[in-house]
Nucleic acid binder design. Structure first.
Lengths: 231, 231
DNA sequence: ACAAAAGTGTTGGAGATACACCCATGA
DNA sequence: TCATGGGTGTATCTCCAACACTTTTGT
């Protein structure tokens, strides 16, 4: 009855390269230790919440520590608390080496975040010996229940794209309507009609054309747009 | 750095009486102790998660314990983890008397649930010395951050009403289209046109007319309907 | 000249909105 | 007979889906 939990935050960071959605993964290693290749897992960047820290605050701190990504959009989407979240032997081993209370049950709060890959290059640090983008369509087996967490994050993203204007976080500051459309198509996983899509964009607040065109492309250069948050 | 958290679940239970939305509250008392009236708070039914228990499971168990409501719709909507969630003196005092580790920071997972008030009469037990319905429009100051939790639960409910067919959980087994419309109006907080609303219902799966009419009302009795979950 | 993506309008159908009157019952 | 909510249809408008050709650039 003397329940004590560890609390963590896991960030599903989506990036967009103009082609496909990617997820930011870290390699769970130990500082200064070379591990056998089958002894670690890839994972979503997450860590324990500090005793005196709010959840959103923790999510930002942890993401910044592990990937040097700062001031980005982060949204809590769900708690994951199955008692058997940590079920693989090598996950348990890793916890034993890095956590003060490795046996403790840990409940995690899932956040998703969006990043324009062009604008940010993540730099690993701390216990993440590498941080890298991985195409969503090609995810490996991840640590703990992180495959579920990514899947749930994607579902939430899909729902949010329609209502909020979250999506612009994934684009560089200057973008073409083609990029915007491709991104919609990828997130919603369905094809959209170009002319209809452009009509909708015209009706949309905040998408403003610049006095600038694409350069260095091997086709007709597109008009560049930017997004200014309404109000 | 030796973080240990308590983890709880709080259930925002919405009920509908045909007139307005209500929320189920418990009076946080101590078993067998008469407390001065200003020494307790009303609260949403919640309690600590057991060490070996899943979150959804805990939500059901706790709700059942505190209110004798079983097998009802429950949906996780958000975690609340501000470090200062417990800031009132009397909340702290209450925790001291009832919790093994009253000083521990507690993070709570918010669930909302829906109940047809006509079909369920909650019965209090355990440390809730009373469970009662309270109109949403007339909420008192609640314990901890429970006012925020209720507000967030309502927002989530609003979003879910359109997509899912959650709403029928709030109605008795047999209901009139008038009741269904009023419920929509209350949840969405806007007036709907009767004829248009009825057209939409006709297009909706699962709403089937019964061979029965309202009785004992002082106006033209309405056709009764029931909801059968599609498939 | 060719390849590759950008850009541009119209039409038909479905769904949303707005609107006003008669009906059945209990008191 | 009156008060109360139940029940019904039509016209208009807006939004959505379907559809094909010309333009501009780099190679």
């Amino acid at each position: 009855m003397n329940a004590a939990f560890d609390l963590s935050v896991d960030n599903v960071v989506f990036g967009f390269d103009g082609e496909q959605l990617q997820v930011l993964l870290i390699r769970q290693g130990l500082p200064g230790v070379d591990m056998a290749p089958d002894r670690f897992h890839m994972a979503v960047p997450g860590d324990l919440v500090f005793p005196e820290e709010g959840l959103d605050q923790a999510a930002h701190r942890i993401l910044s520590n592990l990937t040097s990504l700062d001031g980005i959009y982060l949204k809590q989407f769900r708690a994951f608390g199955a008692p058997d979240r940590v079920f693989e032997e090598k996950d348990r081993e890793w916890l034993t080496r890095i956590r003060p209370h490795p046996e403790r049950r840990v409940v995690t709060i899932g956040y998703y975040s969006l990043v324009a890959m062009a604008d940010y290059t993540p730099r690993p640090s701390s216990f993440a010996s590498r941080a890298e983008w991985c195409p969503l369509s090609d995810l490996p087996r991840l640590a703990f229940d992180h495959n579920d967490i990514v899947k749930a994050g994607l579902l939430q993203l899909r729902e949010d794209v329609a209502r909020e204007s979250v999506i612009f976080e994934l684009l560089p500051e200057k973008f073409t309507l083609g990029q915007l459309q491709r991104l919609h198509e990828i997130i919603l996983d369905k094809d959209l009609d170009k002319r209809n899509f452009r009509k909708n964009v015209k009706r949309m607040e905040g998408v403003v054309p610049l006095d600038e065109k694409q350069e260095g492309v091997l086709h007709k250069p597109a008009q560049l747009y930017t997004y200014v948050r309404p109000q």
